[in-house]
């Protein structure tokens, strides 16, 4: 029995790889995402220069062999700062997605399993949250409870909750009338156990795709928040803060704004391509739903 299951899983994996090899969007997205994660990981142990050390004689240099992306107005190496900043972007966006999944998915599954007034209250509540302009609310939360990476995570994470809850609910609702769920109910399993054993494994693909999309939106939101000074605080480096500093130097050193902008674009682009690719690779039926 177990051997059989393992064989089936093996078969799934092979099918996945076969489709992935044919999907350019998935390959490009996965390559870019892995590269960014790799850069972030390397920055934990090594960067070409120490970003905390100022070196005024080297300030405002253009790109060169010793400073790939040039230096900023304090003479810091911009490439090293981009490496450091990637950690902040990834951490904030990833934890915000985690909050969305951790709270949203159970809520959505619960609403789908219970139906009735609980479901109604749930839907209306998420309607109300969706009516709040997310960025403005995030600005409000971080400004009031104090700027910083943690509050930025919470502010972005809150708006991920209804997104994941809706996706989970919609997918779970379409599964509940299916025969295999009926069979599970007939064998005496309760709603919680059915959700854990049968619903969740079947909606995991959808959640993964949505997670990738929210991850990229989180990167953009974090950049926006730290650009207006509400995200990560010094001495931490972040791409948004680098852009804010570049803005003040725009007239004399426009190149300072290029690298952080490209870093954000490449990361978001990579995640979006990965999301699109995953959607096509995991389930062609999902293609129409966006």
């Amino acid at each position: 029995m177990t051997d059989h299951l393992v064989a089936a899983e093996h078969e799934d994996w092979r099918l996945f790889l076969k489709k992935a090899r044919a999907n350019r969007s998935f390959q490009a997205g996965a390559a870019i995402t892995l590269l960014i994660v790799f850069i972030a990981a390397v920055s934990l142990i090594w960067t070409p220069y120490d970003v905390a050390k100022l070196s005024i004689p080297d300030r405002l240099q253009g790109p060169s062999w010793s400073h790939w992306f040039g230096t900023d107005h304090f003479g810091r190496d911009i490439f090293s700062m981009i490496m450091e900043g990637s950690r902040n972007s990834i951490a904030v966006a990833l934890i915000a997605v985690g909050i969305g999944i951790g709270i949203g998915v159970p809520l959505g599954c619960w609403a789908a399993a219970r139906r009735g007034w609980i479901d109604e209250v749930f839907m209306r509540t998420s309607d109300i949250i969706f009516a709040f302009p997310a960025l403005l609310s995030a600005v409000m939360i971080t400004a009031i409870f104090g700027p910083g990476a943690v509050n930025a995570i919470i502010a972005i994470g809150i708006f991920n909750i209804p997104v994941f809850a809706r996706v989970a609910r919609g997918a779970a609702l379409s599964l509940w009338p299916r025969e295999f769920i009926l069979a599970a109910r007939a064998s005496g399993k309760g709603p919680a156990r059915i959700t854990a054993e049968h619903i969740l494994p079947n909606i995991a693909n959808l959640l993964l795709v949505q997670g990738t999309i929210q991850f990229s939106l989180g990167i953009l939101a974090e950049a926006g928040l730290s650009y207006v000074g509400l995200g990560a605080q010094p001495p931490a480096t972040s791409w948004g803060r680098m852009l804010a500093e570049a803005q003040t130097m725009m007239a004399i050193a426009p190149q300072m704004a290029i690298a952080p902008g490209i870093a954000i674009i490449v990361t978001v682009l990579g995640l979006n391509l990965l999301g699109d690719g995953l959607r096509d690779v995991l389930d062609p039926k999902l293609r129409r739903e966006r």
């Binding site: 953009l220 725009m250 007239a251 704004a257 902008g261 954000i264 978001v268």
Partner: peptide, 22 residues
């Protein structure tokens, strides 16, 4: 359009300012 979605609007704004205003 993939590129357009990935560009943060405030960064694009900075570039516009540099090119058309500065």
């Amino acid at each position: 359009t993939q590129l357009g979605i990935a560009i943060p609007n405030f960064w694009f704004a900075l570039l516009l300012v540099y090119v058309f205003a500065v």
